[in-house]
Design a protein around this nucleic acid. Structure first.
Lengths: 207, 207
DNA sequence: CCGCATCCCCAAAGATACTG
DNA sequence: CAGTATCTTTGGGGATGCGG
């Protein structure tokens, strides 16, 4: 990983560790728990296997990721974050929050990869969410929010269930527009959640 | 800037905007105020003028940086952050804080560029610092901390003055070791500051 | 299958020279 | 001073191969 900024600066040092292309996205995946090599390949469309191997090696060398061999009968290798790696969570949350403010609705080109819904919810609203049991259904994705924690899949006794497509969920959180989704249950609780969602920012687009 | 992760994810989007090499360091410089092109070149050792030009163009196109022509008689161009760009501060602070935990003492290779002291203090302790007037003198660098705000250069009526080399400042904040620096003034206040400094993390180093 | 290593090709980064 | 032009070098994307 011959990529050094050669500046005595904590930011430059952090970027030396996780500033490489794909590195933070690999870490994002591992934030949800240990994953196998091929799982990572699947959830990082376009990464290229050599790049992933290199990133994992570098991250391991820098004490951010650990490689572990599952006990038999699985006998497969998994990658997981070290404590130091997990320490990136606040930084990544802030960065994602910032990014979310200029993130438009999903386009067709953009891959709605498996788990995107839980992922987006985790980074954007989980930390701010009021206590409660929310369930969101978008296409074949189901993600839930239980007292500020994201849970993949449906939950028991949800207080609110929101159903719609990606477009609808987007306009729900960004424009507070309820027209494109179907809401079942406690509308007031959902309103509380929308209250804390980060506001969008209008950004100029390059000609 | 053909660098798209093509994933509908706020993190991936953020990295599309500021994930390019040097981008966050350019923004770090602009966090301290508007700067001219050559000032940026000076403070980003090794960047290459074409890269800087490209980054500034991309950042401007994405609404993160704005180009402004100074009023006469200066008549020079400066770059400054937009509101959206300034919104990166929390994310950068968290990232730098994380990086600082594994940042060792400065090595000879690493350039102690102009302003490194104020830079490091700003990212690492400014947000946590107790009220008070601190002054730090390291070589020809002088940076101060006034009620949690970093000020370049000396200040009037400092309550504490710390003097030493980079090594000494490092062991002061990381190891709470006072042996390599000279402290004048309110030792208790300095102790308060050291209390809130982020702890270092031992990380394995690659063979 | 899973976990990579290798190879080829191209796009981006580094270095430096040069110009309005 | 503020970049562009040019050239070289490095790293990434994509396919394929291959041992366990």
């Amino acid at each position: 990983m011959p990529k050094r900024y050669e500046q005595y600066c904590p930011m430059a040092h952090a970027l030396d560790l996780v500033g490489d292309r794909w590195a933070l996205l690999v870490i994002r995946e591992l934030m949800h728990g240990a994953k196998r090599y091929t799982d990572l390949v699947d959830r990082l469309p376009g990464i290229g296997t050599n790049i992933l191997a290199t990133r994992l090696r570098d991250l391991e060398g820098n004490g951010i990721v650990a490689r572990r061999v599952l006990p038999p009968p699985a006998a497969s290798k998994v990658y997981e974050l070290t404590d130091y790696g997990r320490g990136l969570r606040p930084a990544m949350r802030e960065l994602a929050l910032w990014g979310a403010r200029s993130l438009g609705p999903p386009s067709v080109q953009e891959e709605l990869f498996d788990g995107w819904l839980g992922n987006a919810m985790d980074t954007v609203i989980a930390s701010l969410a009021p206590p409660g049991r929310f369930e969101f259904r978008v296409g074949n994705e189901v993600a839930s929010l239980v007292d500020g924690e994201v849970v993949d899949g449906p939950i028991d006794d949800p207080q609110v269930v929101v159903e719609g497509d990606a477009q609808g969920i987007y306009s729900l959180f960004v424009d507070r527009c309820l027209d494109l989704v179907t809401v079942t249950g406690d509308h007031d609780l959902l309103a509380q959640l929308l209250d804390v969602a980060p506001p969008r920012i209008e950004q100029p687009v390059q000609a």
